[in-house]
Structure formats: C-alpha cells, structure tokens
Design a protein around this nucleic acid. Structure first.
Length: 644
DNA sequence: GGACGAAGGACCC
DNA sequence: CTCCAGGGTCCTTCGCCC
C-alpha cells in the first residue's frame, strides 16, 4: 500500500491546460430512474446494463417506483417548456442581445474576483465506513461488503462495487446484485474515533480546518505551503506546485499512519470548490492538483461533465442535458441564453462556476463566531400505518426526543443517566404501538455523546471534548416554528408547519402542535378521499427559527462591542455572493462577518439553484425586462471563451 | 416593494 | 423473513401584511 501511494505521490503532474486529461467517461447514463451516480471509483468493470436490469426488475410496480415515475414526468414536462424557450431564443434576437451584454459584463466582474492566492485542500476518506470495518475485521477484506441495513446502504467496499453495489442503494437490491454481500450495521462510534484521529492530522496543516462530515474535510493550507517554501514567495510556478503537491501527499500519508491504514483522496486548488472536484478525480488513495493559473482552471472545469459540479444533481443534469448541455464549457458558451431560461441566481451561479471561480474565503478575524444550526429534526420510517392514534403516538415520541436534544447536553446527560424519565417512558410505549420502536429505547437512553452527528454537527463538535479535554457543552435552544413531515404510503411527501407565539423546547408544546397539524391533515385527507384514512410510511418533526440560550450572553457582549448577529432570519448573506456580480468590488464580502463554516460551505451548499419552469413561462415579459438592455456590439459567442 | 410564513424541492453526505 | 434513510442547508413561489 505504501508503495502504491508513493508512486503516485511522486508524480506532480499537473493538469494540462487543455483539460484533455479530464475528458472522462462522458458515458451518458440514459437519464433514468436508477443510475445511482455513475462513474464512481471502482466501478470500471461493472456491467451497467445488467445492473440496471436487476434494479429495474426489483423496483418495477412498487410504490416507490411509481412515485419516481410521476416525478420524472413532471421534470420532463418542465424540460419541454425550457426547450421551447431555448429554441425560440436561438432565432429571435432582441432579448438575447441584452442578455449577452449582461453575461459579458458579468464575466468581466467575476474574473475580477478570481483568486489564486490561497491553497485549498479537500480530503475525502475512501469508502470510509467500510474501510474502518475492514481495518478492524481483516476477514472482510476480500469480501464484498457494505455498511448499512437492508433498507439503505451508506457505503460499500470496492469488491462490492464490482457488482454494482454502491452507497445510497437499498440493501435488498444490493443483495440481489451480489448475493454474497456482507452487510455490516454501522458503528458510528468507531467512525467518529477514526475521524477524530484524521482531524488531528488536518489541524497540523490548518488549525482552522473544517470537517463537513465524518469523512470529508476542507483545509486552507496556504501557510503550510509557504512554510514548505521557506517563507519565500515561490520563484516559479513549478516549484510552487511541487510544494503544494508535497503538502497534500504529507497530509495523506499522516492520515494513513494516524488511522491505522485508512486511505484518503485529496484535491488541491485555489478554491474549495475546485479542490472538492479534484478530490474525486483520483480516487481511491490518490490526489489531484489543479494548477494555479486561470487558463488551466478554465481547461479543467470546462471539460467536466456538469454532474461533477457540487450542486448539480440528477435533476439539474437532466434539465441542462435537455438543452443540449453536457460539459461545463457548454454552459460557459451559452451563458447569455441561460440567463434567459434559468432563474437569475441559477444562471449567475452556473456562469461563475463554469469559470472555476468560487469564494471560499475564510475570514481569520472571525474565529469567535460559532456555527449555528438553522433547524433540528427527527424523522422515522415505519411500516405503512393508517391508524391516527398510532401516528399520534409516534409524533409524541419524536417530539419528546427532539425536545430532549434541544435542551442541550445537560438535559441529555440527565436523561441518559436516569435511563428514562416520564416523557420517555411514555414515548417508549407509544413507539411500540406504532411499530417503529426498533432501536429507539437504546437511543433515547444514550448519554450525550451518542447523538447523531448530522451533516454539520462535526464542524465544531467532532469530539465530545475540546482540545483541553474539557467536556463540550451543547447549548440549549428553542424554536419558534414547528413542522411535521408526512410521507404517504405512495411516497408523496407533505409538510405542515405552524409558528408559535414563543420559541419553545418543551416536549408537551411541540407534541401538541404537531398532533394538531397531523390531525388536520388527516381530516383533510379523509374529506378529499371519501373517508379513506391517511396512510403514512414516515413521520418527522422539525423545529426552526431557533434561538440559542447562550446567544443571550452574546447579545450582551454585542451591546458592548462588535459581534455580528448570527441567527434569526437576518441572514448575513446580503444578496448572496453570486447574486450581484455588479458589486464586483465587494471584496468586503467574505471579509468579515461570516462564520467560519458558512464561509467555507458557501459554495457547495448554497447551490441547489433550481428554477421553476412554470414561472418562467408565465412571465417571460417580466423576465425579459429585467435584463438590462443596452449595448450592442457584435459579439460572437466564441469571443466569450477566450481568456484574456 | 419588502419581510415573513408556509409548502415544495434539489442536493449533500 | 426483510421491500428505497435521516439529518441538514438553501432556493423558489405564493400569499398576506404592511
């Protein structure tokens, strides 16, 4: 293993600026229901057609499948609308003229904001959960195995991937594809321990590194690289690239040593988005460097299939594909027309990203600001249930568990030691009635260290103690808006929410509010369906509009001095980075006020830019108007692509 | 024209 | 035998209320 890594550590071959290296399998997966993410590492030899056939035969006729078909039909219809408009723009001129001018200005403004002076690294553990299990149980090494349950897998090893098994695939389908598959139940404590070891390594290279999940971290290693260069500015690009390459190699080596042989892949680039993309290019156990010059970057992103962009998922890929766009460079070429067809944000975002520009700045001065979650929720899937009483019992149980979590570490600790207070005893009974009780008793009784990390949880609480070994305190919080999530037996999802007069974290209050919403919906459903009961397969309870108890102190401090306000709708996001390229001078943006985590995530998590077809068709005139007209000039689209 | 609440979605891991 | 998760974030649209 060491040898393998060595060899690829040794070759600081940067990407050629024409991007040819990355002209990967554009193997257009026939846009349909079940390509669970195509060219994943280790899948080279999979018989895709066969896998698709098996998956299809397993799903056909199921409620899940029918729901997917409905969804797909809707999307296809949207695409039809987009297509017509897209074609119309090809012929007609005026609107496009304006848009082209806008796009040109936009691009110039964006180019202004391109930064090449920071070195970002994204590290991604290879098949993390499976790797940990294999490390601890060598007999699993050469076996196809996956971590998860029959319901859903979270990751699979490479032996399993050869059969077409992959993460986010339901376990029962995976077993069909690979009858010898060993499915291991997840053991999060082990994964957390391993992640903690890795993070200790990351901190040596970037004390402020941010973990997005157990298996992925973002590092700004600029300082480490310049130390490597002896504090001198790199005389030339090659030396600089080599230094970057070596730092990344060192990180990966140290991670492997620290974790007892787990491997990871990494990408390095001038911004976090590019680094993220690069981290995926040489998986597993490899690394990739995007050169630090605009020309190379344009070549690199340009050649990528759109799906590689974090933020472009199954739907967006299909939509853009419907317009004939396949690769990032296509988007760049069509920036003007896209401005006429997509929502303004989506268009602007795509344009920027197609240039390989992203803002992953981290404001050093902002170290004090902790990340604040925006919502907290709990949901449970169970066997189809039509009895309102049973559903309400589940609601009560979810509400009381959520309440407990919201009360912070102190409450959780008490509950953990006492085993079961009144609320939980009640919840336990209720749960078994609803048939959703499996692991619940255990979970509820778990001490504070137990609870699920969540997507962001790791950002500052990857461990239960701080660096000095003091136990970490989870602040109590209250929420003002409560939402119930209902997934019908048909897989259709509904959400019903209500805003309370006062923020709360009381189990009773939350429970009562949720029960009311569920009862209402149940009535409505019966009325609309000739008395048929509402049959659900999932219930969820969520709270948002959160206020944190320890923010009270912060407000006091704020009164005395600086500190920005972090929570409540006032979103420090002022117009959103991509939103207004006009204020290109907003070097100030990303300069101060954002919490560390937000700044880093900015790019990758805000991009669910989707747009609604309907509205665009309903208000074409309005849309046209908002494109600042003016300008003329002949500009051939090719002029767009050139790098100045 | 906002700000705010509600509902529905896309996406990520 | 088992039959598609759960925890988050952000975007968009719409309606209501200034």
């Amino acid at each position: 293993m060491a040898a393998e890594r060595d060899s690829d550590v040794r070759a600081p071959q940067a990407v050629s600026s024409d991007g040819a290296v990355y002209e990967t399998a554009t193997g257009r997966a026939e846009a349909h229901y079940y390509h669970f993410s195509h060219d994943k590492a280790g899948m080279g030899s999979v018989d895709k057609a066969k896998v698709a056939a098996v998956v299809h035969s397993m799903s056909e006729g199921s409620s899940f499948y029918r729901n997917e078909e409905r969804r797909d039909a809707r999307i296809q219809q949207q695409i039809e609308g987009m297509r017509r408009r897209w074609q119309a723009l090809r012929e007609g001129g005026l609107e496009l003229e304006g848009a082209a001018a806008t796009a040109r200005r936009e691009r110039a403004a964006m180019e202004t904001r391109r930064r090449l002076d920071r070195v970002w690294v994204v590290v991604d553990m290879d098949m993390f959960f499976a790797a940990v299990e294999m490390r601890d149980k060598p007999e699993l090494r050469d076996q196809p195995m996956a971590v998860g349950g029959t319901g859903m897998l979270s990751t699979a090893n490479y032996a399993a991937r050869k059969f077409g098994v992959r993460s986010a695939m339901p376990g029962f389908i995976a077993l069909k594809l690979c009858p010898s598959l060993v499915i291991v139940r997840p053991n999060y404590d082990k994964y957390k321990a391993a992640a903690k070891l890795a993070k200790q390594v990351f901190r040596r290279f970037d004390p402020q590194c941010v973990a997005l999940s157990l298996d992925e971290a973002y590092l700004d290693v600029t300082d480490a690289v310049s130390r490597k260069l002896g504090g001198l500015p790199a005389a030339e690009m090659a030396a600089f690239h080599e230094a970057v390459w070596d730092v990344v190699a060192a990180i990966r080596r140290d991670v492997s040593v620290a974790t007892g042989g787990l491997t990871c892949s990494a990408g390095a680039a001038p911004n976090a988005m590019l680094a993220k993309i690069a981290s995926d290019m040489n998986k597993p156990d490899g690394q990739c460097l995007v050169p630090f010059d605009a020309g190379s970057i344009l070549g690199f992103v340009g050649a990528l299939p759109l799906r590689k962009l974090p933020g472009i998922g199954r739907v967006s890929e299909t939509q853009l594909g419907g317009l004939g766009l396949r690769v990032v460079a296509d988007v760049r070429d069509e920036a003007a027309r896209l401005h006429c067809v997509l929502s303004p944000r989506m268009a602007t975002w795509l344009h920027r990203v197609s240039l390989g520009i992203a803002e992953s700045g981290r404001s050093g001065s902002e170290a004090g600001a902790q990340y604040r979650r925006k919502s907290i929720s709990l949901e449970r899937t169970f066997r189809d249930e039509g009895s309102l009483a049973a559903l309400q019992a589940t609601v009560a149980k979810l509400a009381s568990k959520l309440s407990l979590q919201m009360q912070g570490s102190k409450a959780a600790a008490e509950a953990g030691s006492s085993g079961a207070d009144g609320r939980q005893a009640e919840a336990g009974r209720a749960g078994s009635e609803a048939g959703a009780a499996e692991d619940d008793g255990v979970q509820a009784a778990r001490p504070p260290r137990g609870h699920v990390p969540g997507f962001f949880g790791m950002a500052d609480s990857d461990s239960d103690s701080d660096d000095a070994g003091r136990p970490k305190v989870r602040p109590a919080m209250r929420g003002r808006t409560v939402t119930v999530k209902l997934k019908l037996a048909s897989f259709k999802v509904l959400q019903r929410s209500a805003t309370l007069a006062e923020p709360t974290n009381s189990a009773e209050v939350i429970s009562a509010a949720c029960k009311r919403l569920v009862a209402q919906e149940s009535e409505r459903f019966k009325a609309a369906h000739g008395g048929r009961p509402l049959v659900l397969r999932l219930l969820g309870v969520k709270m948002h509009g959160l206020v944190f108890d320890d923010d009270v102190d912060e407000e006091e401090r704020a009164a005395a001095g600086h500190m920005c306000k972090l929570d409540d709708g006032s979103d420090e996001d002022d117009g959103a980075d991509g939103g207004s390229p006009e204020r290109a001078d907003s070097a100030v943006v990303g300069q101060g006020r954002r919490p560390v985590l937000r700044a880093v995530l900015d790019e990758r998590l805000r991009q669910m830019r989707r747009h609604s077809q309907q509205s665009q068709q309903q208000h074409p005139a309005k849309r046209a108007r908002r494109q600042p007209g003016g300008s003329s000039g002949q500009r051939s689209l090719s002029g767009f692509v050139s790098i100045s």
